[in-house]
Structures are given as C-alpha cells and as structure tokens.
Design a protein around this nucleic acid. Structure first.
Length: 436
DNA sequence: TCTGGGGTCCTAGGACCC
DNA sequence: TCTGGGGTCCTAGGACCC
C-alpha cells in the first residue's frame, strides 16, 4: 500500500539514472527591472505587491540590509530612505513576458521543460550525455545573454536535490551559476550543512515539529526513520525523504495542465462600503477570471464570491462572507458568469460594513470539448461564443480593457501603484529607445 | 494613512449506504 | 437491554509552493 502511493508518482522512464535540472531566475522581479535599467545593478532594489502593499522581491543588497519577504511597505519606509533603496510597484505584465523569454531560451537546449512557476523551470536531462556542469553553465550564460536575467542551474538525481543545487549556485559565485551534484559523498557533505527549513516541501509548521526531534539539517531528516517521518508529515514527508536520498518521487510534468480553480481577488486601497462599487469590482474580477478560463479552453461549473473586512484592524472583528452558485450547465461566458457573480455579491454584502478585500473563485472546471450538455439546456447555449471570442481578441490587441461587461462599471476604484516602471516589452509606447 | 495573490495536494471526519 | 462493519463520497481545514 505504502509502496503503491510512491510508485504512482515515479516517472516511468525505464532509465534508472535520472537527472533533472532546475533553472531558477535570481531575484526574478528585481532582475526584470534591472534588465532595462542597468543603473540598478549593485544597488538595493525591491518590488512591491498589489497596492504597493508588501515586499515580494528583493535584490541581494536589499536582503543584506535586512528587508524581509512580505514586509509591509509602510513599515520599511524609514529604511528605504536611509539606504536609498530603489522601489518598484509590481509590473506583472513585464515579468510574465520576461518569463516567457527565459523559457523560450531554455527550450532551445531541451524542448521539453516543465514550467513550475513564473521564475522556475525543471528540465529532464535523463539520458543526456556529456558534461552536465558545463551544460548548466552554458544554459545560464545564454539565458543571461538573451534575456538579461541571471539564472541559476542546479542539476541532480531528483527534483528536490536539483533545487538544493540551484540554491548553492546563489551561495557560491565561484560555481558560475551552475551546480551539478551527483557524487554520493558530495551530496552527503552538502546535506549535512543544508538547513531543513530550506528544503523544498518543508514548511514552517513542519520545521517546528522536526525541531522537537533535533532534526535541523537535510541530513538529519534523511537519517530519521521512515515511519517517524510518515507519522509527522504523511506521504509527502516520505516523498521528500526519498527524494533527498536520490530516489525520484516527484514526477516530471512537461504538459501544461489546466487549472482546477481560477481565482481573482484584490485588496482595496480604501475600504468599500457601497454595494454598487463592490459589485462592480466583483464583476471586474469575474471578467478577468473568465478570460483566463477561456484561454485554457475550460468551462466553469461553480462560482464563489467572497468579501472580507480588514484583518489587521483591532477595533472590530474580522468578517469574511462568501456565497456559491452552481451552474446547471457549465459556462465560459463572461455575461453569464458576471450575472451570477453580481447576484452573489448582493447576497454577500451587508450594509454598514467596510470591505477591504474581495474576490471571485471559479471551480468545478471541466474541458469545453468534453461537455455533457444537460438534457434541459437551451440549444443556443453557446450563443455567446463568438461575442466572447471577439471581446478577447480586442482586449488582447488593444491591451487591457478595451471592451467591458456592463456590470463592471467604469473602474472608479484605482489601485496604488506609485512606483511603476514602464511596460518595456508589452506596450509599444514604452519600448526602450537606444541613444547612439 | 499604509499589511499580496494564486495555486496544489493530502487527511480526517461525517454522511450515507448496504 | 442489546446497539456491526465496511465501503464510498464529500467537505473543511491544514500544509505546502511561488
């Protein structure tokens, strides 16, 4: 039974010597800003989340000053002035575009890559002959040259070990952004020094539990009995333990999987107390989610709307209300989705409440091609297809929100983005000009 | 004044059925 | 008074990731 759990996720390549690379972009959002503004090199730089709320990326210099991931911006204003930290509002369009460029560069080496996140990709090097260390160095060099983004390439027998190898690259500049970790004695030396809290899959809660057993390094974890790890962490703990010992338990997935849920939510600069404003926001979030839904060719079976108060306020109790609607027949029409969402927004709203955050979540998502039409569904149930298609194309070619659903309103609520860089690669007006 | 956003998977426990 | 046992499915909550 336990064995089957594990085997299910092991890639069945038929090759007993597996090898994975992890390409990890260094301080990715900061590196994107630097790629177009070289004056930022060697300077402390941070990037902020929506509404300029929290720190979501830091340059090494900013880390050295003591700026933490997730620090609220208003709490570090003093340090920003004192150390002349360069501040940017998150420019997600730019980062997504730069990410695509890095992926395209990696694919020139090995076509099948697994895009793990906006700044990370796994590459299956199983069966590849040659000097892995120099292959990694070459990948890192070409990525930097083609995109301006510094990338760390960690290579080892499992994904978890490859992650560790990529972290070593950042720690030791001498490695030239590429670390191939394969000899058992080297792996042992590394794991004995590697903090368990930095291992992929080991989070805060687990670190606290492991600490009670004096497990503080990756090697301690690997040396602990399997039953004990299973008891503390369940199957995922056993997988991580196997991965550290060189047995792959996390499969390589190069096909792009459709999302099982699609969410759009935002915090507001000022609390919303007006129902019309709230429902316009909800409609806007719904339209954004619906666009993502159509992009992956899916239908939504269930929609959830939520709105909550400011969880940091101490003078009143935190409230989070939500409501759900199930569609008789799944849909991808913004019109149907917005109609449902606005109705839900009305049922969630309570007068006199100040809402600080709200959002929309689509679930029960299915592929459009395998739709089982309900017996009672109207024959014209795809009547909005052409309209949606036209709307998506207009919005794509004209950028942003050229066409809106009526319930979205006119966007009266603006987010704070006081430090936005130009849309260098995604807006013709912002394309950098070379002065010669 | 000001505190992000979007995902996945696993597990335990309850409801329900035979 | 006595009060089974096993299976499935669903859901909420926890934990993790970036």
């Amino acid at each position: 039974m336990q064995g089957q759990d594990l085997i299910r996720t092991i890639p069945c390549s038929g090759n007993d010597s597996t090898c994975y690379a992890l390409a990890d972009c260094n301080n990715f959002f900061v590196s994107c800003e630097r790629a177009f503004n070289p004056a930022l090199e060697k300077k402390p730089v941070i990037v902020l989340s929506n509404n300029d709320g929290c720190v979501i990326a830091r340059s090494n210099e900013a880390k050295a000053i003591g700026i933490k991931m997730g620090d609220p911006f208003f709490k570090i204003r003093e340090a920003v002035r004192k150390y002349k930290i360069h501040v940017f509002s998150g420019n997600m369009q730019l980062y997504a575009d730069m990410s695509a460029r890095v992926h395209a560069t990696l694919r020139e080496f090995i076509p099948e890559i697994e895009i793990y996140s906006i700044d990370e990709a796994f590459i299956d090097l199983g069966g590849i002959q040659g000097d892995m260390k120099s292959l990694g160095e070459k990948m890192a060099y070409i990525c930097r040259r083609n995109t301006g983004i510094p990338v760390s390439i960690g290579i080892s027998k499992t994904k978890t070990l490859a992650k560790i190898a990529s972290k070593l690259c950042k720690q030791y500049p001498k490695l030239h952004n590429s670390c191939y970790m394969h000899r058992p004695e080297d792996i042992e030396t590394v794991l004995k020094k590697f903090p368990i809290k930095d291992v992929w899959g080991i989070g805060r809660r687990t670190v606290a539990k492991l600490d009670l057993y004096n497990i503080t390094t990756a090697w301690d974890f690997l040396s602990a009995p399997e039953d004990m790890i299973r008891g503390l962490m369940g199957i995922n703990g056993v997988r991580t333990r196997n991965e550290l010992s060189g047995i792959p338990c996390i499969a390589f997935e190069d096909s792009i999987k459709s999302r099982q849920s699609i969410m759009t939510s935002r915090s507001f600069t000022k609390e919303i107390t007006d129902m019309e404003l709230l429902s316009e926001q909800i409609a806007e979030f719904t339209a954004m989610s619906a666009e993502k839904l159509r992009k992956q060719g899916s239908l939504c079976g269930e929609i959830m709307v939520f709105a909550c108060t400011n969880r940091f306020r101490t003078d009143e109790t935190y409230r989070n209300s939500s409501a759900v609607f199930k569609f008789e027949t799944p849909t991808d029409s913004s019109i149907e989705l917005c109609t449902a969402a606005v109705r839900l927004a009305h049922s969630v709203f309570s007068p006199g409440t100040g809402y600080k955050r709200a959002g929309v979540c689509f679930s029960d998502i299915s592929g459009k091609e395998i739709l089982q039409p309900s017996l009672f569904a109207a024959p014209d149930r795809f009547k909005h297809d052409k309209l949606m298609d036209a709307m998506d194309r207009l919005n794509k070619s004209m950028g942003g929100k050229a066409v809106l659903i009526a319930s979205e309103g006119s966007g009266k609520i603006a987010n704070t983005k006081d430090h936005m860089s130009p849309h260098y690669t995604t807006d013709w007006n912002d394309i950098p000009v070379a002065h010669v």
